Amino acid sequence: MTNPFRTLKAGNRMQQVSEVVNSWNEWDPLEEIVVGSADGANFEPTEPGNRPQIRNAPPGTPFPSGPKSAEAVDRANEELAGLVSLLESEGVRVRRPAPHDFSQSVRTPDFEAANQYCAVCPRDVMITIGNEIIEAPMSRRSRYFEFQPYRELVYEYWNADPRVVWTTAPKPSMADKMYRDGFWDWPLAERHERMHSFEFCVTQDEVVFDAADMSRFGRDIVVQESMTTNRAGISWLKRHLEPKGFRVRPVHFPLDFFPSHIDCTFVPLRPGLVLTNPDRPLREGEEKLFLANDWELVDAPEPTTGNDEMPEFCQSSKWLSMNVLSIGPNKVICEQQEKPLQELLYKLDFEVFPVPFRNVFEYGGSLHCATWDVRRVGAGEDYFPNSDYQPLA
Protein backbone atom coordinates (compact mmCIF):
# COMPACT_ATOMS: atom_id res chain seq x y z
CA MET A 1 0.00 0.00 0.00
CA THR A 2 1.35 3.43 -0.93
CA ASN A 3 1.95 5.68 2.04
CA PRO A 4 0.50 9.09 1.10
CA PHE A 5 2.99 11.06 3.23
CA ARG A 6 6.39 12.35 2.26
CA THR A 7 8.78 14.75 3.95
CA LEU A 8 9.34 18.10 2.22
CA LYS A 9 11.21 21.21 3.37
CA ALA A 10 7.93 22.66 4.55
CA GLY A 11 7.25 19.63 6.72
CA ASN A 12 5.16 16.52 6.26
CA ARG A 13 2.84 16.70 3.26
CA MET A 14 0.75 14.06 1.56
CA GLN A 15 1.63 12.86 -1.92
CA GLN A 16 -1.72 11.77 -3.23
CA VAL A 17 -3.33 15.07 -4.25
CA SER A 18 -6.24 14.88 -6.68
CA GLU A 19 -7.37 17.76 -8.87
CA VAL A 20 -10.96 16.60 -8.35
CA VAL A 21 -11.20 15.43 -4.71
CA ASN A 22 -8.81 17.11 -2.30
CA SER A 23 -9.65 18.22 1.24
CA TRP A 24 -7.40 17.61 4.24
CA ASN A 25 -8.78 19.96 6.88
CA GLU A 26 -11.69 22.24 7.76
CA TRP A 27 -10.17 25.60 6.77
CA ASP A 28 -8.08 25.57 3.56
CA PRO A 29 -9.41 27.78 0.70
CA LEU A 30 -12.59 26.18 -0.57
CA GLU A 31 -13.03 25.30 -4.27
CA GLU A 32 -15.94 22.83 -4.49
CA ILE A 33 -18.67 21.85 -2.06
CA VAL A 34 -21.99 20.02 -1.89
CA VAL A 35 -24.87 21.91 -0.25
CA GLY A 36 -27.86 19.94 1.01
CA SER A 37 -31.49 20.21 -0.05
CA ALA A 38 -34.76 20.01 1.89
CA ASP A 39 -36.69 18.62 -1.08
CA GLY A 40 -38.77 15.61 -0.09
CA ALA A 41 -37.81 15.85 3.60
CA ASN A 42 -39.74 13.81 6.15
CA PHE A 43 -39.97 13.95 9.92
CA GLU A 44 -37.48 11.60 11.52
CA PRO A 45 -39.23 8.54 12.99
CA THR A 46 -38.88 7.26 16.53
CA GLU A 47 -36.47 4.30 16.57
CA PRO A 48 -33.93 2.71 18.93
CA GLY A 49 -31.22 5.15 17.87
CA ASN A 50 -33.39 8.25 18.06
CA ARG A 51 -36.32 9.52 20.08
CA PRO A 52 -37.36 12.90 18.62
CA GLN A 53 -39.44 15.23 20.76
CA ILE A 54 -41.34 18.46 20.23
CA ARG A 55 -39.77 21.28 22.25
CA ASN A 56 -41.88 22.69 25.07
CA ALA A 57 -44.70 20.21 24.37
CA PRO A 58 -46.47 18.35 27.21
CA PRO A 59 -44.94 14.94 28.00
CA GLY A 60 -46.30 12.23 25.77
CA THR A 61 -47.09 14.53 22.86
CA PRO A 62 -46.48 12.44 19.73
CA PHE A 63 -43.83 13.65 17.32
CA PRO A 64 -45.17 14.27 13.80
CA SER A 65 -44.66 11.66 11.11
CA GLY A 66 -44.57 11.69 7.34
CA PRO A 67 -43.48 14.50 4.99
CA LYS A 68 -42.56 17.97 6.18
CA SER A 69 -44.98 20.69 5.09
CA ALA A 70 -44.37 22.43 1.77
CA GLU A 71 -43.99 25.70 3.66
CA ALA A 72 -41.27 24.29 5.96
CA VAL A 73 -39.40 22.83 2.98
CA ASP A 74 -39.60 26.12 1.08
CA ARG A 75 -38.31 28.12 4.06
CA ALA A 76 -35.32 25.83 4.46
CA ASN A 77 -34.60 25.71 0.73
CA GLU A 78 -34.65 29.50 0.54
CA GLU A 79 -31.89 29.71 3.16
CA LEU A 80 -29.91 26.90 1.54
CA ALA A 81 -30.17 28.81 -1.76
CA GLY A 82 -28.83 31.90 0.02
CA LEU A 83 -25.82 29.89 1.17
CA VAL A 84 -25.29 28.66 -2.40
CA SER A 85 -25.36 32.24 -3.72
CA LEU A 86 -22.81 33.39 -1.14
CA LEU A 87 -20.47 30.50 -1.89
CA GLU A 88 -20.69 31.08 -5.62
CA SER A 89 -19.99 34.79 -5.13
CA GLU A 90 -16.74 33.70 -3.44
CA GLY A 91 -15.77 31.60 -6.47
CA VAL A 92 -16.77 28.24 -5.00
CA ARG A 93 -18.32 25.61 -7.26
CA VAL A 94 -21.49 24.29 -5.59
CA ARG A 95 -23.10 20.91 -6.25
CA ARG A 96 -26.44 19.61 -4.96
CA PRO A 97 -27.78 16.14 -4.06
CA ALA A 98 -29.98 14.25 -6.51
CA PRO A 99 -33.75 14.01 -5.82
CA HIS A 100 -34.76 11.18 -3.50
CA ASP A 101 -38.08 9.90 -2.20
CA PHE A 102 -37.62 10.03 1.57
CA SER A 103 -41.20 8.93 2.16
CA GLN A 104 -40.19 5.39 1.17
CA SER A 105 -40.04 2.90 4.02
CA VAL A 106 -36.89 0.93 4.76
CA ARG A 107 -37.01 -2.82 5.26
CA THR A 108 -34.14 -5.25 5.73
CA PRO A 109 -34.00 -8.72 7.32
CA ASP A 110 -33.13 -7.01 10.62
CA PHE A 111 -35.37 -3.94 10.89
CA GLU A 112 -38.06 -1.74 9.40
CA ALA A 113 -38.41 2.05 9.36
CA ALA A 114 -41.62 3.81 8.35
CA ASN A 115 -39.82 6.46 6.31
CA GLN A 116 -36.43 8.02 5.65
CA TYR A 117 -35.29 11.53 6.63
CA CYS A 118 -33.76 14.14 4.28
CA ALA A 119 -30.70 15.30 2.33
CA VAL A 120 -30.16 18.56 4.20
CA CYS A 121 -27.02 17.38 6.01
CA PRO A 122 -24.51 15.69 3.67
CA ARG A 123 -21.82 16.22 6.35
CA ASP A 124 -23.37 13.41 8.41
CA VAL A 125 -22.85 10.71 5.80
CA MET A 126 -20.07 11.90 3.48
CA ILE A 127 -16.51 12.98 4.28
CA THR A 128 -13.46 13.81 2.20
CA ILE A 129 -10.12 12.82 3.69
CA GLY A 130 -7.40 13.91 1.30
CA ASN A 131 -8.14 12.27 -2.05
CA GLU A 132 -10.57 9.75 -0.51
CA ILE A 133 -14.35 9.88 -0.19
CA ILE A 134 -15.72 7.84 2.71
CA GLU A 135 -19.42 7.01 3.05
CA ALA A 136 -20.26 6.58 6.72
CA PRO A 137 -22.38 3.59 7.80
CA MET A 138 -24.73 5.86 9.81
CA SER A 139 -26.30 5.06 13.16
CA ARG A 140 -30.04 5.39 12.56
CA ARG A 141 -32.39 3.18 10.60
CA SER A 142 -34.15 6.03 8.80
CA ARG A 143 -30.77 7.16 7.44
CA TYR A 144 -29.63 3.73 6.19
CA PHE A 145 -29.85 4.78 2.53
CA GLU A 146 -28.99 8.44 2.95
CA PHE A 147 -25.89 8.01 0.78
CA GLN A 148 -28.08 7.57 -2.31
CA PRO A 149 -28.65 11.28 -3.13
CA TYR A 150 -24.85 11.68 -3.40
CA ARG A 151 -24.04 8.51 -5.34
CA GLU A 152 -24.20 10.17 -8.79
CA LEU A 153 -21.73 12.82 -7.66
CA VAL A 154 -19.40 10.24 -6.17
CA TYR A 155 -19.36 8.31 -9.43
CA GLU A 156 -18.61 11.53 -11.29
CA TYR A 157 -15.62 12.30 -9.05
CA TRP A 158 -14.40 8.71 -9.10
CA ASN A 159 -14.56 8.47 -12.89
CA ALA A 160 -12.89 11.86 -13.40
CA ASP A 161 -9.58 11.06 -11.69
CA PRO A 162 -7.94 7.66 -11.04
CA ARG A 163 -6.34 9.12 -7.93
CA VAL A 164 -9.76 9.45 -6.27
CA VAL A 165 -10.34 6.72 -3.70
CA TRP A 166 -13.90 5.77 -2.77
CA THR A 167 -14.66 3.76 0.35
CA THR A 168 -17.98 2.67 1.81
CA ALA A 169 -17.77 1.67 5.44
CA PRO A 170 -19.45 -1.62 6.45
CA LYS A 171 -23.17 -1.27 7.02
CA PRO A 172 -24.25 -2.29 10.55
CA SER A 173 -27.27 -4.53 11.01
CA MET A 174 -29.27 -1.91 12.94
CA ALA A 175 -31.04 -4.86 14.57
CA ASP A 176 -32.52 -4.32 18.04
CA LYS A 177 -29.44 -5.86 19.65
CA MET A 178 -27.24 -3.09 18.21
CA TYR A 179 -28.93 -0.56 20.51
CA ARG A 180 -28.82 -0.28 24.28
CA ASP A 181 -32.20 -1.19 25.72
CA GLY A 182 -33.60 1.43 28.09
CA PHE A 183 -31.09 4.15 27.21
CA TRP A 184 -33.73 6.78 26.49
CA ASP A 185 -35.38 6.20 29.85
CA TRP A 186 -32.27 6.76 31.98
CA PRO A 187 -32.84 9.70 34.37
CA LEU A 188 -30.32 12.55 34.31
CA ALA A 189 -28.77 11.37 37.59
CA GLU A 190 -27.98 7.99 36.04
CA ARG A 191 -26.51 9.66 32.96
CA HIS A 192 -24.25 11.66 35.25
CA GLU A 193 -23.08 8.49 36.98
CA ARG A 194 -22.37 6.84 33.62
CA MET A 195 -20.83 9.85 31.86
CA HIS A 196 -17.23 8.61 32.10
CA SER A 197 -18.07 5.18 30.65
CA PHE A 198 -19.23 6.74 27.35
CA GLU A 199 -21.93 4.15 26.78
CA PHE A 200 -24.81 5.58 24.79
CA CYS A 201 -27.71 4.28 22.67
CA VAL A 202 -25.51 2.14 20.39
CA THR A 203 -23.60 -0.85 21.77
CA GLN A 204 -19.98 -1.68 20.96
CA ASP A 205 -20.66 -4.83 18.95
CA GLU A 206 -20.79 -3.41 15.41
CA VAL A 207 -18.99 -0.69 13.45
CA VAL A 208 -21.02 2.51 13.84
CA PHE A 209 -20.01 6.06 12.98
CA ASP A 210 -21.43 9.21 11.43
CA ALA A 211 -19.01 11.27 9.34
CA ALA A 212 -19.92 14.41 11.29
CA ASP A 213 -18.24 12.98 14.39
CA MET A 214 -14.89 13.51 12.64
CA SER A 215 -12.86 16.70 12.34
CA ARG A 216 -9.88 16.86 10.01
CA PHE A 217 -6.55 18.39 11.03
CA GLY A 218 -4.39 17.34 8.08
CA ARG A 219 -2.54 14.22 9.11
CA ASP A 220 -4.70 13.91 12.23
CA ILE A 221 -8.37 12.91 12.31
CA VAL A 222 -10.09 13.78 15.58
CA VAL A 223 -13.11 11.54 16.28
CA GLN A 224 -15.73 11.98 18.98
CA GLU A 225 -17.09 8.93 20.77
CA SER A 226 -20.81 9.58 20.89
CA MET A 227 -24.37 8.37 20.43
CA THR A 228 -23.64 8.11 16.69
CA THR A 229 -20.03 6.82 16.78
CA ASN A 230 -18.92 3.92 18.96
CA ARG A 231 -15.51 2.46 19.79
CA ALA A 232 -15.88 -0.21 17.09
CA GLY A 233 -16.40 2.57 14.55
CA ILE A 234 -13.28 4.37 15.76
CA SER A 235 -11.32 1.11 15.57
CA TRP A 236 -12.43 0.64 11.96
CA LEU A 237 -11.28 4.19 11.11
CA LYS A 238 -7.92 3.56 12.76
CA ARG A 239 -7.38 0.31 10.84
CA HIS A 240 -8.45 1.93 7.59
CA LEU A 241 -6.62 5.25 7.84
CA GLU A 242 -3.50 4.68 9.92
CA PRO A 243 -1.74 2.40 7.40
CA LYS A 244 -2.05 5.38 5.02
CA GLY A 245 -0.16 7.60 7.44
CA PHE A 246 -3.01 9.26 9.32
CA ARG A 247 -3.36 9.41 13.09
CA VAL A 248 -6.89 8.82 14.40
CA ARG A 249 -7.37 10.49 17.77
CA PRO A 250 -10.50 9.76 19.84
CA VAL A 251 -11.83 12.62 21.98
CA HIS A 252 -14.50 12.72 24.66
CA PHE A 253 -16.78 15.38 26.14
CA PRO A 254 -18.09 13.87 29.39
CA LEU A 255 -20.52 16.71 30.23
CA ASP A 256 -22.46 16.17 27.01
CA PHE A 257 -25.07 13.56 27.95
CA PHE A 258 -26.40 13.21 24.37
CA PRO A 259 -23.28 13.74 22.20
CA SER A 260 -23.97 13.60 18.49
CA HIS A 261 -21.54 15.12 15.95
CA ILE A 262 -18.46 17.08 16.90
CA ASP A 263 -19.12 20.24 14.88
CA CYS A 264 -21.14 21.93 17.62
CA THR A 265 -18.55 21.14 20.27
CA PHE A 266 -14.99 21.32 18.93
CA VAL A 267 -14.54 23.36 15.73
CA PRO A 268 -11.10 24.08 14.19
CA LEU A 269 -11.09 27.45 12.44
CA ARG A 270 -7.52 27.67 11.14
CA PRO A 271 -4.10 26.26 12.05
CA GLY A 272 -3.56 26.81 15.76
CA LEU A 273 -7.12 27.80 16.67
CA VAL A 274 -10.13 25.73 17.82
CA LEU A 275 -13.53 27.10 18.80
CA THR A 276 -14.65 25.18 21.89
CA ASN A 277 -17.94 24.70 23.71
CA PRO A 278 -17.82 26.04 27.31
CA ASP A 279 -20.57 23.60 28.35
CA ARG A 280 -18.68 20.59 26.93
CA PRO A 281 -14.99 20.65 27.83
CA LEU A 282 -12.62 17.96 26.64
CA ARG A 283 -11.99 15.07 28.99
CA GLU A 284 -9.17 15.99 31.36
CA GLY A 285 -5.82 15.31 29.72
CA GLU A 286 -7.03 15.36 26.10
CA GLU A 287 -6.32 19.07 25.81
CA LYS A 288 -2.59 18.45 26.32
CA LEU A 289 -2.06 17.41 22.69
CA PHE A 290 -3.36 20.76 21.46
CA LEU A 291 -1.56 22.89 24.03
CA ALA A 292 1.72 21.06 23.44
CA ASN A 293 1.49 21.99 19.77
CA ASP A 294 0.62 25.66 20.36
CA TRP A 295 -3.07 25.41 19.55
CA GLU A 296 -5.32 27.98 21.20
CA LEU A 297 -8.68 26.75 22.51
CA VAL A 298 -11.20 29.62 22.53
CA ASP A 299 -14.65 29.26 24.10
CA ALA A 300 -17.61 30.22 21.95
CA PRO A 301 -19.91 32.88 23.45
CA GLU A 302 -23.37 32.00 24.72
CA PRO A 303 -25.74 31.49 21.76
CA THR A 304 -28.36 34.14 21.10
CA THR A 305 -31.11 31.51 21.29
CA GLY A 306 -31.59 29.27 24.32
CA ASN A 307 -32.50 25.59 24.09
CA ASP A 308 -36.15 26.37 24.88
CA GLU A 309 -36.29 28.93 22.07
CA MET A 310 -35.00 26.71 19.27
CA PRO A 311 -37.46 25.66 16.51
CA GLU A 312 -40.04 23.26 17.92
CA PHE A 313 -39.04 20.31 15.71
CA CYS A 314 -35.28 20.88 16.00
CA GLN A 315 -33.50 18.04 17.82
CA SER A 316 -30.18 19.89 18.07
CA SER A 317 -29.02 22.11 20.92
CA LYS A 318 -28.57 25.87 21.04
CA TRP A 319 -24.91 25.23 20.20
CA LEU A 320 -25.76 25.05 16.52
CA SER A 321 -24.43 28.59 16.85
CA MET A 322 -20.93 27.05 16.61
CA ASN A 323 -21.75 25.17 13.41
CA VAL A 324 -19.86 27.56 11.14
CA LEU A 325 -18.35 26.90 7.72
CA SER A 326 -14.82 28.03 6.90
CA ILE A 327 -14.22 28.98 3.26
CA GLY A 328 -10.61 29.92 3.91
CA PRO A 329 -8.19 30.21 6.83
CA ASN A 330 -9.52 33.71 7.59
CA LYS A 331 -13.05 33.53 6.12
CA VAL A 332 -15.99 32.08 8.07
CA ILE A 333 -19.72 31.86 7.31
CA CYS A 334 -21.82 32.33 10.46
CA GLU A 335 -25.56 32.26 11.18
CA GLN A 336 -26.98 35.77 10.87
CA GLN A 337 -28.46 36.08 14.38
CA GLU A 338 -25.30 34.97 16.19
CA LYS A 339 -23.92 38.46 16.78
CA PRO A 340 -21.75 37.56 19.82
CA LEU A 341 -19.98 34.83 17.84
CA GLN A 342 -19.54 37.16 14.89
CA GLU A 343 -17.94 39.75 17.19
CA LEU A 344 -15.55 37.14 18.57
CA LEU A 345 -14.58 36.06 15.07
CA TYR A 346 -13.92 39.66 14.06
CA LYS A 347 -11.62 40.05 17.06
CA LEU A 348 -9.79 36.91 15.95
CA ASP A 349 -9.14 38.58 12.55
CA PHE A 350 -11.68 36.66 10.50
CA GLU A 351 -13.73 38.02 7.66
CA VAL A 352 -17.26 37.01 8.66
CA PHE A 353 -20.12 36.30 6.27
CA PRO A 354 -23.48 36.24 8.12
CA VAL A 355 -26.37 34.38 6.46
CA PRO A 356 -29.87 33.52 7.74
CA PHE A 357 -30.13 29.81 8.49
CA ARG A 358 -32.63 29.41 11.34
CA ASN A 359 -35.19 27.59 9.20
CA VAL A 360 -32.66 24.87 8.42
CA PHE A 361 -32.18 24.05 12.10
CA GLU A 362 -35.12 21.65 12.33
CA TYR A 363 -33.45 19.43 9.70
CA GLY A 364 -30.61 18.52 12.02
CA GLY A 365 -27.88 21.10 11.61
CA SER A 366 -26.57 24.43 10.47
CA LEU A 367 -23.92 25.66 8.01
CA HIS A 368 -21.25 23.01 8.51
CA CYS A 369 -23.75 20.16 8.73
CA ALA A 370 -25.51 21.25 5.54
CA THR A 371 -22.34 20.97 3.45
CA TRP A 372 -19.74 18.45 2.31
CA ASP A 373 -16.50 19.99 1.09
CA VAL A 374 -15.04 18.06 -1.84
CA ARG A 375 -12.05 20.19 -2.79
CA ARG A 376 -9.91 22.74 -1.00
CA VAL A 377 -6.56 24.20 -2.00
CA GLY A 378 -3.70 22.60 -0.10
CA ALA A 379 -2.18 19.32 1.00
CA GLY A 380 -1.98 17.28 4.17
CA GLU A 381 0.14 18.89 6.88
CA ASP A 382 1.32 17.70 10.27
CA TYR A 383 -0.15 20.20 12.73
CA PHE A 384 0.91 18.13 15.77
CA PRO A 385 4.68 17.57 15.43
CA ASN A 386 5.02 17.31 19.21
CA SER A 387 3.34 13.96 19.60
CA ASP A 388 4.30 10.49 20.77
CA TYR A 389 1.37 8.91 18.93
CA GLN A 390 2.04 5.43 17.56
CA PRO A 391 -0.29 4.58 14.65
CA LEU A 392 -0.86 1.03 13.52
CA ALA A 393 2.02 -0.40 11.47
Rank of each mutant, 00 (worst) to 15 (best):
T229F: 12
A10R: 14
R141V: 10
D213Y: 06
P48K: 00
V222Y: 00
V267I: 15
A98L: 13
W186G: 01
G378V: 09
C201F: 09
D308M: 01
A175C: 03
L345N: 05
A175R: 13
F5D: 07
N307G: 04
L282N: 04
P271V: 13
E135W: 04
V35N: 06
S197D: 15
Q315W: 08
E296D: 06
D161I: 10
E335S: 12
P301N: 07
R231K: 15
E71Y: 05
P67Q: 00
G272H: 05
A113W: 04
C121Y: 09
E335G: 11
F246L: 03
K347N: 12
K347W: 01
L87G: 01
F357K: 00
R123H: 12
T304A: 11
S366C: 14
A189I: 09
C201A: 13
P250L: 00
E19T: 10
N56R: 10
P271T: 12
W166G: 03
D256R: 12
P243N: 09
A370G: 11
T304Q: 12
M138S: 08
A160L: 09
D101V: 00
H196M: 13
G82D: 14
I221A: 10
K318A: 15
R358P: 11
K347R: 15
P99K: 00
N12W: 09
D74L: 06
L8V: 15
P52K: 04
V73A: 01
D213M: 08
M214L: 15
N159L: 12
T128H: 01
M1C: 03
Q390C: 09
Y363R: 07
T305P: 01
P356E: 06
I33N: 01
E32K: 13
Y157V: 03
V222W: 04
L241Y: 14
D124N: 12
L30D: 02
Y389K: 03
D205L: 06
V377Y: 01
E335V: 05
